[in-house]
Design a protein around this nucleic acid. Structure first.
Lengths: 230, 230
DNA sequence: TAGTGGTCTAGACCACTCA
DNA sequence: GAGTGGTCTAGACCACTAT
């Protein structure tokens, strides 16, 4: 029997969309109709269409049918790996240095983000990540002490705080922000670049339920590129 | 009857993973087992698990079972909208200026990327995108003339080339790169910032099948931030 | 070779929303 | 009210791979 997989149908529909069989914003045939066309169960067509909808290529509405997305907004999926993996995936040797570690009262902006009471101390860490011994990224991080078990200093020699948290403290949601900044003197010194150099900054905040866990700023060395396919 | 939806199961499993019921890398019960536990069809459990796998929280292998991802690599989904929408979504008024438009022989790097023969001319465009009249992003773009129908200059007064291409020329695949660069004199002048200012650069290349369509560099004004949830 | 996930089917009922 | 997608079920067979 002619096996018609949801992959086949997905590819076929994608092709038909891209060839312009249906205009942008136009209605495409319903699931029942397509199932007849392709000679398969409606479930199979449904799965193919759901995949296309996930990819943002069609928009589906009950009773309203399925339409080609009017203005195709392509989505890029970025994976945000642990720094060590980024370095090792590039074929480089990873190492890290804990540069600073203290308990202190965070600045107001951070305190608010971590949901701490005034004058409460939090854990502050500065880590330098290296690739083949050269600075790769400079990380500053605040940790909500109430949300995270104690970290022994010795542990941080083995595992960067970055990876330690990923392994030990699960989070339920998070936010990332990417931007470009000129290196200030402190970061420039840490990364060994000239002050003012454009750096790729990744800001991340994570929490579990409604408890903030940590917020971190990762300044990547000059030339760093984040890429993805569309 | 107690309706057990794949959403319910997904949430429940997510919760159990996040509460640490299974260690990182540990095997979780099979689909049949879970179906019994939740009192539903295997198909339903399957769908929930597939969703978790898509999100990168579990890894599934035939015969090998389903495991909690050893090192959870969280994925961020970024949508890359048309510049106009970015501006308008922020509540600003969008406008654009076509600053330059000429046919010329592209530099070797670009020529190679577009797959053009030596000395072939391509279309080069410079566009300034504005938000409330202030520079928002400066776009330079090379277009493979063989892949794209002629663009009349008048059309580009109505629609930026960015949006014109999205609407008129479907593509099948693409690549994006994000990085930080110091503004050179030309870009600095266009955006009205000091030379050396850190700018967020988005490089995009798209093609249809194996024909290159266009490659573009979008320099965003200082302070631009791209964000996403994890 | 056996066990696990991957997938398809045929049928059913539901939920939403457009006319 | 009716048509479309959303989802669940029960059963089946297949494909991969760990042992």
């Amino acid at each position: 029997m002619a096996t018609v997989s949801h992959h086949t149908i997905r590819e076929s529909l994608l092709d038909r969309i891209q060839r312009g069989e249906w205009a942008l914003g136009a209605l495409i045939p319903g699931e029942v109709q397509l199932a007849r066309e392709y000679g398969c169960a409606r479930t199979t067509v449904n799965r193919a269409l759901r995949a296309l909808a996930d990819a943002g290529l069609v928009v589906r509405k009950r009773r309203g049918g399925t339409r080609v997305t009017p203005l195709p907004v392509r989505q890029a999926r970025l994976s945000i790996p642990v720094v060590r993996e980024q370095v090792e995936d590039a074929g480089d040797r990873y190492s890290h240095q804990l540069r600073r570690r203290r308990q202190s009262v965070p600045p107001a902006a951070i305190r608010k983000r971590l949901g701490l009471a005034a004058r409460t101390k939090a854990l502050y860490l500065e880590t330098l990540h290296l690739a083949n011994g050269a600075p790769f990224a400079f990380e500053t991080r605040w940790i909500n002490p109430a949300a995270v078990p104690d970290v022994a200093a010795e542990e941080l020699e083995q595992l960067s705080i970055n990876e330690w948290l990923v392994r030990r403290v699960p989070f339920t949601s998070g936010e990332v922000r990417f931007s470009a900044v000129n290196a200030d003197s402190r970061v420039a010194a840490a990364l060994g670049v000239a002050e003012g150099t454009a750096l790729f900054l990744v800001d991340r905040t994570t929490w579990r339920g409604d408890v903030f866990i940590t917020t971190t700023a990762l300044h990547h060395a000059a030339g760093y590129t984040l890429h993805s396919t569309l």
